[in-house]
């Protein structure tokens, strides 16, 4: 199903990769930590090392939460598009097969937010 229209109706997507000046969008969400009210959207170069995101970017965006400092990154469970996903800190986004607008979630077992409330 396309769209009901009086003439041909096709458009370029507003958010295609070429529009982001060499970056791709990566969405990232920390499950059970809704003090951050929605997942984040980050523009990242495909050649960025995944470990750099975790080590250099995430502290700036999640560091406010007291659970963040407690995270044992070797135990973190990652999901991509809702399916289990194997992270590798030494590979780049491109090498890990992360495409424009992929969504990652991470789970930190044992850390369940402010007073266990998933906040």
């Amino acid at each position: 199903m396309g769209v009901a229209a009086i003439k041909e109706y096709t458009f370029e997507p507003a958010d295609r990769l070429e529009n982001f000046h060499g970056n791709q969008l990566l969405y990232i969400g920390w499950d059970q930590h809704l003090l951050f009210a929605a997942p984040f959207c980050l523009p990242m170069p495909p050649a960025m090392r995944f470990g750099d995101i975790v080590e250099k970017v995430l502290p700036g965006i999640y560091g406010y939460h007291p659970d963040f400092a407690q995270i044992d990154w070797s135990k973190v469970e990652w999901l991509k598009s809702g399916q289990p996903w194997q992270a590798d800190f030494d590979k780049t986004l491109a090498e890990l097969g992360l495409k424009h607008k992929d969504a990652l979630r991470f789970r930190t077992p044992g850390l369940n937010g402010i007073k266990g409330s998933a906040s």
Partner: peptide, 9 residues
């Protein structure tokens, strides 16, 4: 708390 990172929409 002021969240300065843009959210996913």
């Amino acid at each position: 708390f002021y969240n300065k990172t843009l959210p996913m929409l």
